[in-house]
Design a protein around this nucleic acid. Sequence first.
DNA 1: TATGAATGAGGCTTCATTCAT
DNA 2: CATGAATGAAGCCTCATTCAT
Lengths: 219, 219, 219, 219
Amino acid sequence: MSEHAERTRPRTRRLPREVRERQILDAAVHVFATRGFHPASMDEISESAGVSKPMLYSYLGAKDELFLACLRREGARLTEEIHSAVDTELDAAEQLWRGLRTLFEYVRDDPDGWTLLRRQTNAQGDPFLAELAQWRQNIVRLIAEMLSRATEGGATPRTTDQLEPFSAALVGASESLANWWFEHPDHTADGMARRLMNMVWMGFGDLVQGNYWEPGTGA
Amino acid sequence: MSEHAERTRPRTRRLPREVRERQILDAAVHVFATRGFHPASMDEISESAGVSKPMLYSYLGAKDELFLACLRREGARLTEEIHSAVDTELDAAEQLWRGLRTLFEYVRDDPDGWTLLRRQTNAQGDPFLAELAQWRQNIVRLIAEMLSRATEGGATPRTTDQLEPFSAALVGASESLANWWFEHPDHTADGMARRLMNMVWMGFGDLVQGNYWEPGTGA
Amino acid sequence: MSEHAERTRPRTRRLPREVRERQILDAAVHVFATRGFHPASMDEISESAGVSKPMLYSYLGAKDELFLACLRREGARLTEEIHSAVDTELDAAEQLWRGLRTLFEYVRDDPDGWTLLRRQTNAQGDPFLAELAQWRQNIVRLIAEMLSRATEGGATPRTTDQLEPFSAALVGASESLANWWFEHPDHTADGMARRLMNMVWMGFGDLVQGNYWEPGTGA
Amino acid sequence: MSEHAERTRPRTRRLPREVRERQILDAAVHVFATRGFHPASMDEISESAGVSKPMLYSYLGAKDELFLACLRREGARLTEEIHSAVDTELDAAEQLWRGLRTLFEYVRDDPDGWTLLRRQTNAQGDPFLAELAQWRQNIVRLIAEMLSRATEGGATPRTTDQLEPFSAALVGASESLANWWFEHPDHTADGMARRLMNMVWMGFGDLVQGNYWEPGTGA
DNA sequence: TATGAATGAGGCTTCATTCAT
DNA sequence: CATGAATGAAGCCTCATTCAT
């Protein structure tokens, strides 16, 4: 009887397009993050979103496009949060510190999004992943520029040379450390950011001698 | 013409098992590295190895097992090279330097293997990838121990606390920098290792002030 | 011409699930009965059902499950028909007579189902066939109980001892005689049941002396 | 070392063809009986026979032919044993009794052979199984003739009519009872044969009244 | 004689995607 | 707007069988 009753009106109400899209994206981000792009199935996504598959396609297109939409949303969210956290007037160490702290806050608040951004690596044959690579490179370049601005004057040419690979390494270290955090969740975002700041700013040579970086210390 | 091109390599016949296994593994490492686990097809691997599919299965088992065999071979190769390069008698900086140099040499000499090790991330539902995660964690731990040994005496408790996350970050930085290298191949392995050494040992704070790490300098 | 012949039945479209499931089961029972489990191919079943293969899987699961579904449907049908034909108030001979007659009517009306139930033997490595063995054993036990009830009082202990193996033999005789019937179809179900009744009730010793069993005669 | 030593001379000696064929047939009968025709693999058979696959094919041909060879050997063995046990001079009951006893002795002594003969049912699409069906029918006919001879004089026409289906049912009952025996092995061949004899000769009607058949009693 | 090496062919299964209602 | 019904295409895997030594 109750089964019958449920069938008397459509399972889901007519919702405004915007709401539906967010529902779907939320579900898709979760499934893609949990399974990875290829093993994720459109069936699971549609079910998890509480939407029929035709709606999925009609709202967000094919699997590639849906995945891209997820990447774009999460990438933009992270980028914006970092942007609004750093202030180009500050010195390099402070900017870095704020950026890292924001990053780890994002990781904490939206672990699926982070997994999504972090998991996929560029792969020949998955051309649509090029956009993700592009996005990463942008971040790397932003950091490089930030450091460049912040070190104008003092920086020797040799330092400048190192800026981009340094930024790349920094991004890699952040990603890896965030993963480590997943397995050791008894740390705060602040603590994680501070850890990373120490590493990249002070270097192991200093740490070994007991010299630590502290927020507010400056360059 | 293109039809003829497909017959590029004539099917060599009746080779001893050992040789065939190596052929297959070589091809599989290449295809898995190029495409990733899921998109790689057994068809492509068998074709690329110049061997029929039943041989794949007869010699190296199902797709999972073949993939694991690739991971094991490449992982063991890298591990061994690094092991034989570092000498636990040396101080930390020197050990790190040698390890990093060997790593980048491996990346240069066996880029497919590197991509393989680097590309796959652990995903729920791909339990066989757990072995890769395990292997990575072992490396992290090895580095942490190395640093721990090398800093005995001087290290404060706080430093010790940081050793494992630091190692994780270091591995991430190496991976990311190696990727950057793929896109800027006009650098030597030695140069890349030196770059990374500067970052992790000196830290950006020192670099900014013109203090660089040099091989042979010691801790 | 033959190309056109293949399109014999136009793909009916958009049928309710219930109808499709029956269509599929009908086809599957036929193919499984004709070929046996292993040689039957999902391709042939899907084609014979006028449905694409994914529908088979979506509606009735993998080959094992589809086969089990066939067994269950046919087994239940036969069991029910016999159940509603016999009446535990009657004496043993009458019950047996009605059961046998119903059995042969089922064989006549649903030869594929009968072949299905009769053909498969339990094999190590086909664990899903255990259910069929179980079902057979249930029938044997039912018959044994029926005879037991019907002979209470008169039966000596020795008779009771024989009830289960006797029932097993009876089932085997029925199966074999039904097969014989397939090759000599110019007999009625009633005639076949009477034949078997004579054998099992009177025994050859009586038959040789011209003593036959007749319906309505009683024990 | 021992592994190496084993390789210094061929794993198997040159054996006369006859011996090899018996080896192979023994293994094949076992595997076919255990798994059934389709699931049995030539790999398992060759391994179980201690012979390489090319030898298998060279000695006994393809899978169908090998299977047929198994059926023929086992079928002939059983037929011969029964033939030499019965004596057409004896009366019907005694012949039947001896035949049944021999049958159950064969089942006891060569259960794989029995399973082989009993398991496969004629299947459209497995044309090579027709020979098995033929063989069964021969047995049925033999029994019918035996009964016919043994009842000449006393038998009414109606009895004659029943002889072939009766024989078919008898064979089915034997098969089924032999299967039951597999699951209740704590009985002797003699006991089983006596059981069956009671059923087919006396019939349930007599049994219910305490009339049993005893060896040596005659018709 | 004897066998390790090798494969064509075919079966099971699933997935992204679309149609008809 | 919304969906249950439907499928082409492709992937993994195994088997009977033969070749070259």
